[in-house]
Write a protein that binds this DNA or RNA. Structure first.
Lengths: 208, 208
DNA sequence: TACGCTAGTAATCGATTGATAACATGTCAA
DNA sequence: TTGACATGTTATCAATCGATTACTAGCGTA
């Protein structure tokens, strides 16, 4: 944004800043398309610092993806912790769906995960992808008390939601099929999400 | 593979060869990660020819994605054409699911589409992504006679299936959660798909 | 057989990218 | 104060990639 005085931070604080920036950039452009330079600009540091702090782009992506998966797990566990124990399946499903949809506010988080999942062929990131997915799956199945088919059904919905987010389906709002698809997939939060996603402006030229 | 005599082909035949190669390469590495050189090697032609025939990488990806979406539509329409008219929802759903799963045999087809869907932010490819998705959606809803919610549910399953394919979930076969997830998502075709996906060897170094 | 069109390739270029090395600056303890 | 370590930056490099240009070879046909 603006050129401001940038105070020295601890490595820990910078690390978090860079990971947040990496989440935005990798979320929008994917692993191969996201450059360390764009991430550095987004975080307000030099490209060399980004690379050296994480020891390479691959490690940086891995860290950003791990962080994203950890946040999804936390959001689910946080929701589950609020259960009283007498909820039926529909109540639990709705609560977890709302938690998932809430994660969309963190621009890039779910998209970074989707890009991770598309790297199954990669010898290093492929196993990371499968581990992240299965870790979250286990949380929903075991800690929320879903059966296997119930958890699978829940993840189906989640993947459609994520793909629609990646596709920027609200950009097609007004077309009848798009409107119906969104209202079926997002339910009562459809209008929220339309304004949310449309507010997410693309990375500016400065970060290119 | 082997160095063979390469006869002259018509432009139409070469075009199809290159699109098939592009589907494989883009499916595995995505738009940004898939190089025109890898596609050229996969198709057995020079990199310059690939670029010039399609007028640039973006047009090539667009053509490969359009071709993939057209094949999905064709597979669905072909299935629907076999309906007698007295099927119930479950029968239609199962038949269409089988058609979709059958598309996995074409290495790269569904993965190229998934990568396309992740480009919603792109000013050129974003609209292409939304159009492709909505076109297929319309086929299922209108021509197969699904309601909006039924079609949405069907596409949820499809997106999970596709993500599991991208993730190479069969590489985690043996782990209990992975096995349960696959049996829930793939049903009776689970073992087919495990052998199918594991037979899909990564692109070799020569095509790097 | 010479001509013109189509199907190709080899060579090369400029831009981008991830990475590294060398250097600078701030902070804190002895 | 000084010195040692942590927080950064600038400059630069080798590799890669998409694209362009110039050239070559096959093939039907007038």
């Amino acid at each position: 944004m603006s050129e401001e005085m940038r105070p020295r931070l601890t490595a820990e604080e910078r690390r978090e800043q860079i990971l947040a920036a990496a989440s935005v950039v990798f979320g929008e452009r994917g692993y191969a398309g996201g450059t360390t330079d764009a991430i550095a600009k987004e975080a307000g540091v030099s490209q060399a610092y980004v690379v050296r702090m994480f020891g390479g782009k691959e490690n940086l992506f891995r860290a950003a993806a791990d962080r994203a998966a950890a946040r999804v797990r936390f959001a689910f566990r946080d929701t589950i912790a609020g259960f009283r124990g007498d909820e039926d399946l529909d109540e639990k499903r709705l609560a977890l769906s709302m938690a998932y949809i809430g994660l969309m506010a963190d621009r890039g988080l779910l998209l970074t995960l989707l890009h991770l999942f598309s790297l199954g062929h990669d010898p290093v990131l492929g196993p990371v992808a499968r581990d992240c997915f299965l870790d979250v799956f286990r949380v929903v199945r075991d800690e929320a008390g879903f059966t296997g088919p119930e958890a699978t059904e829940f993840f189906s919905r989640g993947m459609l939601t994520t793909v629609l987010l990646a596709m920027r389906i609200p950009d097609s709002a007004g077309r009848p099929e798009a409107d119906e698809l969104m209202s079926c997939a997002f339910g009562e939060r459809t209008t929220d999400l339309i304004s949310l996603m449309q507010g997410q402006v693309p990375l500016d030229d400065a970060a290119r």
